[in-house]
Design a protein around this nucleic acid. Structure first.
Lengths: 208, 208
DNA sequence: CGCCACTCTAGAGTGATACTCTAGAAACGG
DNA sequence: CCGTTTCTAGAGTATCACTCTAGAGTGGCG
């Protein structure tokens, strides 16, 4: 039973991995079920046994990658981080994940998001708020202590991720070839001015 | 000849407008050439006479909408704006355009960008740098005078547009139903701290 | 072992769809 | 009024997502 479950998992996971590779190469439109099947060495029947449609595979893949991304972000901060240090870590975590997981990031941020089913969007919302909660556990005490300026969780996120994301998208799409991590220090400096209380700014760990 | 050009333009433009409407309703995947043709009352032959493919129509539409968006942004600032005032105007221009041109914005920011042809991406780059130039004409003197902190043009953009874009995307995708303009004041305040020199911050026109 | 139930694999078949092709209508120049 | 170019028309084709039917593999239970 253990072995069987493992077998099932690999067949399914092979399809997911093949999907990611083919979507990355050909885009969502250009990717054919046949190409994914072939790459995963699965029959047509198997494909539609595991995933009801090409879209369903895409959605599953999306949520799976989203979870990995969130895990990377959450791992960046803990209670020991001060405000500037934590801001810096979040930004670096984002940039590092994008660059080190280029295909996954491209899928997450560049592939069409507009046509997910309501089920997928719901799951995405849930995951998003779970991430927000985790980051809040680090942020709330700092706001309390006056080290971070008061603002809603989503505004805080927008300040950390938003600017970095502009560079990441340009890089992911191939529009810009320079490594987004080159912008890390200046992005961190701006973000600190935007969200950290003036008195708390000194104790940063930046090197530029 | 004038009349003919106008006729041609309408047939073509009808297809583009129909394309936008159908893409908005059904997404890029779900949109069929037949649906676009029908809505524009054009024959199959006409469609493929004007656009070599569905993708080409999509690309043309993309560049056309991008130009309108850039025009809205450029119109927001002129030499008379001080640093905080200009930052506020740019952010408001972005938010206003997105909300007032919801379909266009959705197309520009939500539809898959990963499969444009190199020709389209090149044109996009050109338009982007033209926008950057226009904004630089306003920004450079302020940097010179020490009212704006020194940073590259693209970092400056990332600070203005990036955070706002997070809210816009959430709103455009339907994930979040609150009007992104509600965040205008706090986004402006953060952006000003991020890019405006401390001494120049006082003279802002904000109301919150 | 024999039987059943269930999960997974296989691949031929089907309908929809993007795009091609051929032919002719409309507009315009001379 | 002819020739050329631009545009319209719609039948035809190849490809693709997805369905359907059949059967192989696996495990449970007497």
């Amino acid at each position: 039973m253990e072995r069987k479950a493992a077998q099932v998992a690999t067949a399914r996971d092979d399809l997911l991995a093949a999907g990611l590779a083919v979507f990355d190469r050909d885009g969502f439109e250009g990717a054919t079920v046949a190409a994914i099947r072939t790459r995963a060495r699965a029959s047509n029947g198997s494909f539609f046994h595991f995933f009801g449609s090409k879209k369903e595979l895409a959605g599953t893949l999306f949520l799976e990658i989203l979870a990995r991304y969130h895990a990377a972000i959450v791992a960046a901060v803990d209670e020991s981080c001060g405000a500037p240090e934590g801001v810096a870590r979040l930004i670096r975590a984002h940039l590092d994940w994008v660059v080190n997981s280029r295909r996954e990031a491209r899928y997450l941020f560049e592939i069409s998001r507009s046509e997910w089913t309501e089920a997928i969007r719901g799951a995405q919302r849930t995951q998003n708020s779970r991430l927000a909660e985790a980051v809040e556990r680090w942020r709330a005490p700092l706001v309390e202590r006056g080290e971070l300026l008061p603002m809603t969780s989503s505004v805080f996120f927008s300040q950390i991720i938003g600017p970095a994301q502009i560079f990441c998208r340009a890089w992911l799409s191939g529009r810009d070839r320079t490594d987004p991590r080159e912008q890390a220090e200046i992005l961190i400096a701006c973000a600190i001015r935007a969200v950290v209380a003036p008195d708390a700014i000194q104790k940063t760990g930046e090197t530029a």
